[in-house]
């Protein structure tokens, strides 16, 4: 009986792990591409950029994507294009996306997978400054090639030893919510779960050992009060006031932060 029960519990635990594991799926691979929605490149330029990106891709194992847009997004480009473009295309796990928003003349670099570790905050800033120069000159073609050169350099230099990755962390939960929740709050849920189990065990043990101990005397049914003196004299009153803090004063509005996890920054 005990063995059966243990087997059932183990099977249940295994099933739960499998369900959780299935949700933790990874990306699949695909080649470099240029998606020129803003129509700023000639066919030759697109071909040149693609072959240049492929060379970097062969070296690094990353998929390089160039996307041009006329949306005119002026802030939060990396999040916006991660949700509205990168997540809609089928991209590899290891990828770097360069976005040129012609409408706002701004750009963004979005990294995924292993590329994220090579593009630290410092390197992203360096890349952004460099690309900003090309944007200012409206030299999108030159910017795309320089982007590939810079990635080659970052790859050759390896993963920075003391790099910071705030750009990656801010969007971690968007990549795989379950992984994010488990990695950040799993230990809390674990403690709560263990506490719940222990409380369940203790409460049931106590109830079994103390069956029928309560409710032995009913005062209401066994007492009678005949009052001959009743006074309820008002003495004083006071009123206190508490200011309720407005919830909206705490911060800005929270927009949707969906989409996959990525490293990224605007320029």
């Amino acid at each position: 009986m005990m063995k059966k029960l243990t087997t059932r519990v183990s099977a249940l635990a295994l099933a739960a792990m499998l369900v959780l594991g299935t949700l933790l799926t990874a990306f699949a691979a695909s080649p470099a591409s240029v998606d020129d929605s803003a129509s700023i490149f000639s066919a030759d330029q697109k071909s040149e950029i693609t072959s240049r990106f492929d060379r970097t891709g062969d070296k690094t194992g990353w998929q390089l994507i160039l996307y041009t847009s006329t949306k005119g997004v002026s802030s939060g480009l990396s999040n916006y294009y991660n949700q509205n473009y990168v997540d809609r295309i089928s991209h590899d796990g290891d990828a770097v996306v360069l976005v040129f928003d012609i409408g706002s003349n701004k750009g963004a670099v979005i990294s995924h997978g292993s590329a994220e570790s090579y593009i630290s905050d410092e390197r992203l800033s360096e890349m952004g400054s460099m690309l900003r120069g090309y944007l200012d000159k409206k030299d999108y073609y030159g910017g795309a090639l320089a982007f590939a050169d810079k990635l080659d350099q970052f790859y050759a230099d390896g993963v920075p030893k003391d790099g910071s990755y705030s750009n990656v962390k801010t969007n971690e939960k968007a990549d795989n919510k379950l992984l994010y929740v488990l990695s950040h709050y799993g230990w809390i849920f674990g403690i709560i779960a263990v506490a719940a189990g222990v409380i369940f065990f203790a409460v049931n043990s106590y109830r079994y050992k103390n069956l029928g101990k309560s409710g032995t005397y009913d005062l209401h049914a066994n007492s009678k009060v005949d009052l001959n003196e009743v006074q309820d004299d008002f003495i004083t009153q006071n009123t206190t006031v508490r200011v309720i803090r407005s919830e909206s004063s705490g911060g800005g509005s929270s927009g949707g932060d969906g989409g996959s996890s990525h490293g990224g920054g605007d320029f």
């Binding site: 007492s223 009678k224 009060v225 005949d226 009052l227 001959n228 003196e229 009743v230 006074q231 309820d232 004299d233 008002f234 003495i235 004083t236 009153q237 006071n238 009123t239 206190t240 006031v241 508490r242 200011v243 309720i244 803090r245 407005s246």
Partner: peptide, 19 residues
């Protein structure tokens, strides 16, 4: 945005036969 709490205080006396 204010929460008011009014507390009225009474002197309460009860006396009698209790069985």
């Amino acid at each position: 945005n204010k929460e008011y709490t009014e507390t009225r205080i009474f002197h309460v006396v009860r006396g009698g036969d209790v069985t």
